[in-house]
Design a protein around this nucleic acid. Structure first.
Lengths: 200, 200
DNA sequence: GTCTATACCCTGATAGAC
DNA sequence: GTCTATCAGGGTATAGAC
């Protein structure tokens, strides 16, 4: 069926671009490399996407839409405690760092810093990715509000958690040592303890 | 004098590269642009540097060597309290975010995430930059150790401070809103309060 | 040390047959 | 929708005179 085949082609292109942008960055990835990995010809790519940047936007939207089903749901399966869920997510990043030999970089964070004057459309989808991530953390914190001191602002603490994750990933990658990430998470846990009275 | 003139040429090249790598990133900056901004010809650049990456290393070393005299000393002039010095440094980043209309990105952090498989020489200088920055914070914390709870590890808290700065800058830039940085710093201040008993 | 000219490759994107 | 062939431009780096 033509429609199914073309959907598949499009997906292969987005998948190949996702991998390459993550491995090499946006500017350092060439269209030719994407074509090679996707096993697709130039004509097909430009049939689906007007240009490279539109492909980037498709990649970022697919990340955004995947945060729930591809990241959070697997990580949170079997974990009910909302605060535990937050640290389980951070443990997932630790795992990614370790299995990539400390080469792991958060794809969204890396693109956020690589793209210096991004088209508003690009910047917006990056922000949506961050909002989806920190929004999920905020929801956890709201579920745990019975355990949290009244003065805690869940949104603010959720954004802080995101910032620490991004910073910790950056350090672990730069030093090629997961211990930098671990120490950041340990500090963050101390910060949480302050608001839960140690009840985590 | 030839030697002085050549030193000057080299400096102009490094200066132009510093600006452009910060404004556009490494991969997106062309040699031609660097030559144009430095008002130098191709022959001069390749007389001083074997290639683009060697120029990048020179830029990163100049950042590293400038952290004390160009960043910390001006920011810390007239401030004696070591904990206040840490937050004065963060306030400096806030200022940079504001005067760049939230376009500011930490040049080191951006390069750390942009370069995906950097030559060990490049990665090492980036790590040295981070170590110089967090080392200065650690020194502040050690000077303040009379006020800090015994269980605080100054190195760990200093790295955490760096991670929060980098993450906060990333968020402010992505959302084009300094409030994201401010909330991260406010959370960090609460974290410090925990270890100082509010004595900051 | 600095100049100009240029080699040579790879880039993103297009054209037009099928 | 997918194919091949290719364009026009810009990329890094070099050569050799001065």
């Amino acid at each position: 069926m033509a429609a199914a085949a073309s959907r598949d082609t499009r997906n292969r292109i987005v998948q190949a671009a996702t991998e390459l942008f993550w491995e090499k960055g946006y500017a350092s990835t060439s269209i030719a490399e994407i074509l090679g990995r996707a096993e697709v010809n130039s004509g097909s790519l430009y049939y689906f996407f007007p240009g490279k940047q539109d492909l980037l936007i498709a990649v970022l939207k697919s990340y955004r839409d995947g945060i729930g089903p591809m990241l959070l749901e697997p990580v949170w399966a079997g974990i009910d405690d909302p605060i535990e869920r937050i640290f389980a997510l951070l443990a997932k990043y630790r795992e990614l760092i370790v299995i990539t030999d400390c080469l792991y970089g958060c794809p969204i964070g890396s693109l956020a810093l690589e793209l210096h004057e991004p088209d508003p459309a690009v910047r917006t989808v990056i922000a949506e990715n961050f909002s989806a991530w920190s929004g999920a953390i905020r929801d956890c914190l709201q579920q745990a509000r019975g355990r949290l001191a009244r003065e805690v602002d869940p949104s603010s603490l959720a954004e802080f958690t995101l910032a620490v994750m991004e910073g910790g990933v950056m350090l672990a990658r730069t030093y090629r040592d997961v211990a930098y990430f671990d120490r950041c998470v340990a500090q963050l846990r101390d910060h949480y303890h302050q608001w839960t009275g140690g009840k985590t």
